[in-house]
Simulated assay, not measured.
Amino acid sequence: MSEQLPAAAARLTEAVDRLADRFRAMPQSRLLAAVPGHPSRAAAVLELARRLADSGRGLEGLPALEVPDCGAFAVGDQLAVTGHDLALAAADGHPEALAAALDDVERTDRLTG
């Protein structure tokens, strides 16, 4: 998918995919371990997925929808879906949204590492 996107959108999807893959492979003990400001790593990534979803829907002129808490084992997939949706929504003419989302993904990656 990233080969069809502008460079900034491709960077976002690559960062999202790396973090999502890490969470898909993470053992339950690490998923559920607390990190600063969050009751668990999974909760931190769910919050990120919700922010990305809100941003993407906002760019599309759509109202926010709650990303549900589907459990710790689903957050990698939720992150991938919302991150890719945002990258597509922002790819044409929203470099500031892409940069902000990439910063958010990288910050969450460091927090949950």
Rank of each mutant, 00 (worst) to 15 (best):
Q4K: 09
D54E: 06
D85Q: 09
A49G: 10
D17M: 00
A100N: 02
A72S: 09
M1E: 11
D103F: 01
R22S: 09
R41F: 00
H84P: 06
R11S: 15
G58R: 06
G37E: 04
D17T: 12
D54G: 14
L5A: 06
A91L: 03
T82M: 13
A97Q: 04
H94S: 01
E14S: 08
G61Q: 06
A74M: 04
L86D: 01
R110A: 09
A44M: 03
D21S: 10
A7H: 12
A43G: 13
D109A: 14
H84Q: 11
E60T: 11
A101T: 02
V75I: 14
L19G: 10
A44V: 02
L79I: 07
G37C: 05
A90M: 09
M1I: 07
D77A: 10
L52P: 12
S40K: 07
A80C: 06
A64G: 15
E96P: 13
H94I: 00
M26R: 15
S2R: 08
D103S: 12
A99L: 05
A34D: 11
A15M: 13
M1H: 10
Q28P: 11
V35T: 08
E96C: 00
G71L: 05
L31N: 12
T13F: 03
A42H: 05
L12D: 02
G93C: 07
T112D: 04
D69H: 11
G71S: 03
V35G: 07
Q78M: 11
R18V: 14
Q4P: 13
A64V: 13
R18N: 13
A97R: 01
D104C: 01
G83H: 09
L88E: 13
L88Q: 13
L88H: 12
E66C: 08
A9I: 03
L65C: 02
A53F: 08
A99F: 11
A9M: 03
E106A: 03
G113E: 14
R18F: 11
L19E: 14
